[in-house]
Computed example of a mutant assay.
Amino acid sequence: MKCAVIGGTGLIGSQVVKKLNAAGHEAAPLSLSTGVDVITGRGLEKAVADADVVINLTNSPTFDEASLTFFQTSMDNVLAASHKGGVGHVVILSIVGTDQVPGFVHYRAKTLQEEVLKAGPIPYSIVRATQFMEFIDAVLSSTTEDGTVRLPSTLVQPIAAQDVSDTVADVATGPPLNSTINIAGPDVFSLDELGRITLNARPDGRTVVTDDTAGMFAAVHGDAIIAKGDARIASTHYNDWLTHPRTGST
């Protein structure tokens, strides 16, 4: 199977490309560094021509209002190029609960991306994942001041990037779902608790203070970004990942 992986040099994309090629498929990583620009369309038509599946793993460079334009334009361009190239399946990676947090503009933008894909002319699959374990350090850093990390008690269900890439690769090589699947890690934490667990395992002098107004996750209430129903639950536990962050795939 010929697979065009847009965003194929990033955290998830590079692993998806590796997994697909190891399984005997022909997966090409596409990104700005390979001459493909999803905003201007440069190199896009040629890159996806005759692909069996296009996997779009690109993300907006910002979390502000500009992300709405990014996802509208990029999805329009990907769909147009894919349709012209005879692609039979388009897969995107989204976020669990993205349509449940209207106060977070980046989540609204991801919802828009999903809607554009659903309304398009090509069979599709949407994989929604919870927050990546690999991003927890960045979340802590974003609310750190003078050695204190301020985090809300927002409920989160972190998942390892390897588990996400496993699912994306599996979905991409199957028939189009024309629907959405949710994937998540096996454990639910409050974000402030997760911060304390992380710093206990990797102490650096910082302490965590609970502040329900701090950071971007303050806009999330209740269990809005927790996987529910028939979600696929991965096997990698956060505490295990902290000890062996490069292992523990499903």
Rank of each mutant, 00 (worst) to 15 (best):
M1I: 04
M1K: 06
K2S: 14
K2Q: 11
C3E: 13
C3Y: 10
G7C: 07
T9V: 04
G10L: 03
L11H: 09
L11I: 09
G13D: 05
V16K: 05
V17I: 11
K18V: 00
L20G: 09
N21M: 02
A22E: 14
A22H: 11
E26T: 12
A27L: 07
A27Y: 10
A28D: 02
L30T: 08
T34V: 08
T34R: 04
G35M: 04
D37I: 02
G41D: 03
G41L: 04
G43N: 07
L44K: 00
L44Y: 14
V48S: 12
A49D: 15
D50Y: 13
V54N: 15
N56E: 14
L57N: 15
L57Y: 15
L57F: 14
T58G: 13
S60E: 11
S60Y: 13
T62G: 03
D64C: 08
E65H: 10
E65A: 15
E65M: 06
A66Q: 14
A66G: 15
F71H: 15
F71E: 05
T73L: 06
D76V: 00
N77H: 14
A80T: 14
A81E: 12
S82W: 13
S82H: 12
K84H: 14
K84M: 07
V87W: 11
V87Q: 06
G88H: 03
I92M: 08
S94L: 10
I95N: 11
V96A: 07
T98A: 15
T98C: 15
Q100P: 00
V101F: 13
V105Y: 10
H106A: 10
A109D: 11
T111V: 07
T111H: 08
Q113S: 12
Q113C: 01
E114G: 10
E114D: 13
G120F: 10
P123I: 03
Y124S: 01
S125V: 05
S125H: 05
V127I: 15
V127A: 12
V127M: 08
A129G: 02
T130E: 08
E134P: 06
A138D: 10
L140K: 06
S141C: 05
S142A: 15
S142T: 04
T144E: 15
E145R: 11
T148P: 06
R150W: 06
L151Y: 03
L151T: 00
P152F: 12
Q157K: 00
P158C: 05
A160K: 11
V164H: 07
D166K: 09
T167W: 12
V168F: 11
A169Y: 01
D170L: 10
A172E: 08
T173A: 00
G174W: 04
P175F: 03
A184H: 02
P186A: 04
F189E: 00
S190L: 01
L191E: 00
E193Y: 12
I197Q: 00
L199R: 03
A201T: 02
R202F: 10
R202H: 15
G205A: 07
G205C: 09
T207H: 06
V208M: 13
T210H: 07
D211K: 01
D211M: 05
D212G: 07
D212A: 05
T213L: 04
A214T: 11
G215R: 01
G215I: 02
G215H: 01
G215W: 03
M216G: 00
F217T: 02
A218T: 02
V220P: 09
H221G: 00
A224C: 09
K228W: 01
G229D: 15
D230L: 07
T236A: 13
D240C: 01
D240Y: 14
T247S: 12
T247Y: 09
S249Y: 12
T250G: 09
